[in-house]
Design a protein around this nucleic acid. Structure first.
Length: 221
DNA sequence: GCGACAG
DNA sequence: ATCTTGTCGC
């Protein structure tokens, strides 16, 4: 297992897919029991094949920024639906490694369990880092769902056939919903709770939004 | 065979 | 994700 978790990131799509099948078997989506005092929002911005990753750690539930880290790296891996982690992980890990604190929960701009092979970027990196993680995507990668009611707080199950893979969550009234799924070391219900808890004035959870701001701004500099 | 397809 | 102008709504 420890061997599986230290693979290279430049795998051919076919090898990456095989690896995802294997790693998915190591996922633990049981309830998180430890208290969450800090949450890290993680996002990547890419332009001209140069990635800018940002990790913003915020206190919970106050959402005060405690620390932030960025990293820049050239990326050769293309965007392939279902293989996002192979494109973004290297840069994210570089920024994460420079962190002084150890966040209790990670929130990614992407999916967790809601993935063709049940190993979206949130699950993959949650597993790699051994830290509880949640996936928060802005659109659907797979599956079906019924549009949730327009009021903040409304949500509907996100299905892949008969299986519930996540939830479509309305974090703000009359605003596009967020696609939430558990990543690792946490269950869906808790993931939804933390998304609501960290979504106040914006559609995306504050930590994720902040990370997006930072990565985008860093890219300009 | 034809679409769909996180970021 | 990124590329991009004007434009609709509060």
């Amino acid at each position: 297992m420890a061997e599986l978790l230290r693979h290279r990131w430049d795998l051919e799509p076919s090898a990456g897919i095989s690896l995802q099948h294997e790693l998915a078997g190591l996922l633990d989506l049981s309830p998180l029991t430890k208290p969450v005092r800090s949450i890290a929002g993680i996002d990547v911005s890419i332009r001209h094949d140069v990635a800018h990753a940002a990790v913003v750690v915020m206190s919970c539930p106050d959402l005060v920024i405690l620390e932030q880290s960025t990293a820049r790296a050239a990326v050769g891996y293309p965007y392939v639906p279902g293989l996002l982690s192979f494109r973004e992980a290297p840069t994210i890990l570089e920024a994460y490694a420079a962190l002084a604190s150890r966040p209790d929960l990670l929130m990614f701009d992407g999916n967790g369990y809601a993935h063709p092979r049940r190993l979206g970027i949130a699950s993959h990196l949650g597993l790699w880092l051994g830290v509880p993680a949640i996936g928060c995507a802005k659109s659907r990668l797979l599956g079906s769902y019924q549009e949730p009611e327009q009021e903040r707080g409304a949500w509907t199950p996100w299905l892949d056939g008969e299986e519930i893979i996540g939830a479509v969550v309305r974090t703000r009234t009359a605003v596009s919903p967020v696609f939430v799924s558990a990543g690792h070391l946490i269950n869906l219900q808790q993931a939804i709770q933390y998304v609501f808890k960290t979504c106040t004035r914006y559609r995306l959870p504050e930590p994720v939004r902040q990370a997006h701001r930072v990565s985008t701004r860093f890219q300009v500099e």
